[in-house]
Nucleic acid binder design. Structure first.
Lengths: 218, 218
DNA sequence: TCTATGCTGTCAACAGTGTTGTCACAGGCG
DNA sequence: CGCCTGTGACAACACTGTTGACAGCATAGA
């Protein structure tokens, strides 16, 4: 992959993050320190000279994703709803492109510049919608948690289901239920198995945007 | 805890699940097969005689939680919104009471009777709200994913933050941002750090219920 | 009642994970 | 030129889920 044993490779935070992104783009289910080390052509434990723990590294990678997603939003500031939708879709795209990062991202708060950019973008959008104070931060938090948790869940499904399909079912296997005990499940069984990941994710985004609109109208 | 070394303990699915619940109620961050084995007073690997994998065991435990939550809903069927709120709160309560189960629950679909009961309850509620067909299953799925992902996230935070507090902050540490680059973050910094886990979770539930109401009115 | 067979607990071990301490080398500074 | 800090290499630790071989128990059949 990189240098042979002869010379010692020189690492730094940026190159480690780059390697992590490359490795995640491969589609592996999870990033391990050892795998990342060999991918870098260096000893795995050398990574700990630049990151305090694997959690810290994963946070940095997740922040990178957040930053990429925020940077991809190019709609005019006036179209606040469009910007929110675009940010959400971009986040989902980043998470599914680098599933190992999105899947292992449990903390959902990175304290990095990428996250700050995404937060400011969302706050600005809801501010333009007319929200202020508690209403503002609450609707931001609602959208943020929905987007991060939703995208992480979809990434996790993609990670171990090993598929690059644009759309995948929300429930993996059809749920069989006794029509006498669970009539509505049985009745809507086919509709339920036709539900798609992404469609549901976007519906959630729209619902939150609509809630913000009516909250602002009051 | 149980028998001393002399006699072999007899295991079955029910007793293993019970032990898992007890162990999770302790507040441990995660359940390990070895720990669960010693808690049962048996060899850890004996568990594999009754569950194909740890994932299968965790699924069974999660299904138990779902069932408990669904069983705690006792409002009349007409009050569909109240029932949905109650189910959501009960799920959150179960997840935070057994954090190790809620935290390690990534798949969010257990295929067990507990899950089926919860699904039927939600479908029935949205049906009574007047939703049918695609609108019905979509709003169900929206609420289900929000409740499960949200409760899992809160449980995860509780698990490694080691606190039993009723309410905990949504973001653990205040986010410091340059007011020139991120004016809205800086301006709303205190409001952001005052956001609470549970409050946000319930707001999300209400937003989805409201969306269902307006969808049904059309 | 006695035997045979399959279920199930025990043990050792494997492959993998994150992480730490020790050592040695490289490069920049005085 | 020499020191000293930073950083990579190596070995090892503690932990994870999981499997295969073995042995004993309990039950079904004669």
């Amino acid at each position: 992959m990189a240098n042979k044993a002869s010379t010692r490779v020189r690492l730094d935070r940026a190159s480690i993050i780059d390697a992590g992104m490359e490795l995640a783009e491969t589609g592996v289910a999870a990033i391990s320190v050892r795998e990342l080390g060999t991918h870098l052509g260096a000893d795995p434990t050398a990574i700990y000279r630049h990151f305090a723990s694997k959690d810290a590294l994963m946070s940095a990678l997740l922040d990178e994703l957040n930053g990429q997603a925020a940077a991809r939003v190019d709609l005019p500031a006036e179209d606040w709803a469009g910007r929110l939708r675009m940010l959400s879709e971009a986040t989902l795209a980043s998470f599914t492109r680098y599933p190992a990062i999105g899947a292992e991202a449990t903390s959902l708060t990175t304290h990095g510049p990428g996250e700050l950019a995404a937060i400011e973008l969302m706050l600005d959008a809801f501010h333009r919608a007319g929200l202020r104070g508690q209403e503002l931060v609450r609707h931001y938090a609602l959208l943020a948690s929905h987007v991060l948790a939703g995208a992480a869940g979809i990434a996790r499904a993609r990670a171990d289901r090993r598929t690059d399909a644009e759309d995948s079912p929300w429930i993996d296997s059809p749920l069989l239920a006794d029509p006498r005990q669970f009539p509505l499940i049985a009745e809507n069984s086919t509709l339920l198995s036709e539900l798609q990941d992404r469609e549901l994710f976007l519906l959630g985004v729209d619902v939150i945007i609509e809630a913000a609109r009516t909250a602002a109208a009051r």
